[in-house]
Simulated assay, not measured.
Amino acid sequence: MSSTSSSLLTTTKAAALLHCSRQHVVDLCDNGTLPFVRAGTHRRIRQDDVERLLRPPFRREVEKSLWLHRAVAGKLVADPVRGMALARRNLAHRREVHSDGSADTWFDAWERLLDEGVDAVVDMITARTDIAAELRQNTPFAGLLTERKRLKVLAAFDATHPRAAMSA
């Protein structure tokens, strides 16, 4: 495997990355929390699986926003001129509505990102980082997806991300 993130780690190395004991890593492997492969009698764990454990999961609404923005990314790639123009119009309108300066930080961040171009925008809106999640919550891409497409994405999200059962 060529990339660092997909390299195989020993349980000792995985434990060091997770800041836990080697036995805890073995337990995570044995209970199915951490996928592994066998190399003889030894467990080997993909580095990206270890890194996944280090990232806390997003809240449901943040995951839903990520799914919607993946669809937005598809529209941007298919028609970048229209998508970027819409984002710039929406951003200008929001600046007028919020002329008190309360949201300038987000507006400025979006303007810089739009100036970097479609590739930078697509990378950001589909990223699993805190800053990307914040930017998605202040998206200038309202109206890029049709209502039908938006509802279809939300239905697909709900079908693949069932809500946790309510405790009695």
Rank of each mutant, 00 (worst) to 15 (best):
R59W: 12
P80A: 01
T129R: 03
F141G: 04
E111T: 12
V62Q: 13
P162E: 13
D79Q: 08
L113I: 09
T129H: 01
H19N: 15
K149M: 13
G32F: 10
K64D: 06
V62K: 01
V81L: 07
P80Y: 01
A73E: 01
T105N: 13
E111D: 14
G101C: 11
D49W: 04
L53C: 06
V37L: 15
P140C: 01
K64C: 01
L113M: 04
E111A: 12
N31M: 03
R70G: 01
A156S: 15
E51P: 02
E134V: 12
T4V: 08
N31S: 04
A159L: 08
V25R: 05
S99T: 14
R82P: 07
A15H: 07
L66M: 09
G117K: 01
L68I: 07
F107H: 15
G143F: 01
R70Y: 08
L86V: 02
Q47E: 09
T41Y: 13
L145W: 12
D79S: 14
P162V: 06
R44G: 06
A39L: 13
K75E: 15
R52Y: 09
N31R: 13
I45G: 02
R60Q: 04
V118D: 15
T129V: 00
T11V: 09
C20A: 08
E61Y: 09
R55E: 11
E116G: 10
L86T: 05
P35I: 08
L145F: 11
A165C: 08
A85L: 09
H98R: 09
L66I: 11
D119A: 00
R89A: 00
H19A: 13
L17F: 09
V62R: 06
V37A: 10
V62Y: 06
A127P: 00
K75F: 05
R95M: 07
R148V: 10
A16M: 12
T160D: 11
L91W: 12
L113E: 02
P56I: 08
F157H: 12
R52V: 03
S7W: 08
R55P: 05
S65G: 11
M166E: 14
G143I: 01
A85C: 05
T33L: 07
A133V: 00
D49I: 01
E134S: 11
M1N: 15
N31F: 09
A133L: 00
D158L: 07
D108N: 15
R112H: 13
P57H: 06
A103M: 13
D119P: 00
L66G: 05
